[in-house]
Simulated scan of single mutants.
Amino acid sequence: MNPFSFQSRLALAAGMCLLPLCLAIASPGAHGPNGEHLDGPAAVSAGSGLPRIEAHSEQFEIVGRLDASSLVLYVSRYETNEAVLGAQLDVELGNLKARTAFEAEPGSYRLSDKKLVDALHRAGNHSLVFTLTAGADSDLLDGTLAVAAHDENDHAEGSGSGMRRGAAIVAGVVVLVMGAVLLRRRRHNFGAAR
């Protein structure tokens, strides 16, 4: 007599089939929330969902991202892509103006002025003017930072993703436990029948 009933085999097969699916849903994987590949640091940064800005002139290029408390900017020479370090960089939005602080370790410029950063977090298109002085060279650059209304809720969306991941893990564990209980019950019944 076979110790495994049809229901036990079915539960075990279902558990084995669902486990990879549950693990795939629960694991972060190599793709971002929008399906983009996350193969390296540049791709991770590009998929972060933070508002971004780009501006360039014949001499310089500025790229940056708005995070929760600041605007982080990177400056390079437009033709050579050589980083411009230790320059003076001012940012204007309407009648608000502030100077950035150069951070040598990442080679970035951080705008932390609370009024200006708070204004940038409002939904809409923000036209920024950058005044850059690097040694004997100086330039004015302009760019637009687009902030969507849902960007303020990115953290809430991320927690929903975490809840789905947690639910998938719980579902996988429940399926495995149910299969183990049914298997144990069948083994116990088979042993008692002898």
Rank of each mutant, 00 (worst) to 15 (best):
E36Y: 01
P28W: 04
L183E: 05
Y74D: 15
L23N: 05
R9C: 10
L66F: 03
L120C: 11
M1F: 10
I169T: 08
L66W: 01
E152V: 09
Q88K: 07
S5F: 05
T100C: 08
E105P: 02
A11M: 06
E157I: 04
E157P: 00
A24I: 09
A149R: 00
R186C: 12
V147D: 02
A180M: 11
D39M: 06
A171E: 05
V63Q: 09
V147E: 00
S70T: 13
G158L: 04
V175D: 02
L132R: 00
L141F: 04
R110W: 07
E103I: 07
G166R: 10
V175E: 01
L96R: 08
E105Y: 05
L176W: 00
A14N: 03
A98Q: 01
V173Y: 00
M178E: 05
L38S: 06
V84P: 00
M163A: 15
N153T: 12
D67P: 06
G162M: 08
S45G: 15
Q88R: 12
H121A: 12
L120R: 01
N189G: 14
V63T: 15
A156S: 07
R52P: 02
L71I: 15
V173K: 00
A146T: 15
A24L: 09
E61D: 14
L182V: 04
P41I: 08
H126C: 08
A101H: 07
V181T: 09
A149D: 05
H56W: 12
R77P: 00
G86E: 07
R164N: 08
E79L: 15
R165H: 04
L89E: 01
L132P: 02
A171P: 03
A55P: 02
Q59M: 09
H188N: 12
H150Y: 08
L141H: 03
A136R: 11
D137N: 13
G94Q: 03
A156C: 02
R164V: 11
N95K: 09
G135K: 10
A24Y: 08
R165L: 07
E92R: 09
A98T: 09
L182H: 01
L182T: 03
D113P: 01
D151S: 14
A119D: 06
E61A: 15
